[in-house]
Structures are given as C-alpha cells and as structure tokens.
Amino acid sequence: MKLKKNIAVSETGFLFDPNSGESFSLNETGKKILQFLKEEKSENQISEWFVKNYEVDQATFENNFNDFITVLQNFRITE
C-alpha cells in the first residue's frame, strides 16, 4: 500500500491532496497510520506497533485497518 507522493498530513490531522484539491481530516489513529504508510511500513509492522501501544487486539485492528485502507482507496489517496 503506497500513498500518493505529494500527500502531506499536518500535525493537526489535516490532509490536503494537491492532486485533487480535496481536504480531509483524520483522527489520531488515522494520522498515525498515514505516517507509517508514508514511511512505507508494512501492514504487519503497523499492526504490531498498534497492538503494542494501544488498547486493541490484533483481529480488531486488522479489521479496522482494512476498512481504513478501503476508504483511502475510495478517496484516491493511495497509488
């Protein structure tokens, strides 16, 4: 999963897509995932990190993660 190149996320969780001109807002966990994707971390690495740092089990996180990725694809933020 790769993000489009010039996508940037601000500290506040605001995302501006210069390709489409659309603006988005992210919650804390969404922002974190986007940062990891930007660093080209794998799904496994991301999942591991979340399970370690957040009150969440692996199955729930992976389910949520996949849903999140579907939305990113829907918004054409990924390559």
């Binding site: 807002s25 919650n27 966990t29 969404g30 957040y54």
Partner: peptide
Amino acid sequence: EKLKYERPIITKINAG
C-alpha cells in the same frame, strides 16, 4: 500504559 484506541478514520471536508 497503553493508549486509548479509536478506529482510524478519514473524512472529507466538504468545502462550503
């Protein structure tokens, strides 16, 4: 202590 978890989301901001 682990952080409180919330499902990740991204929502479009509808301008105007």
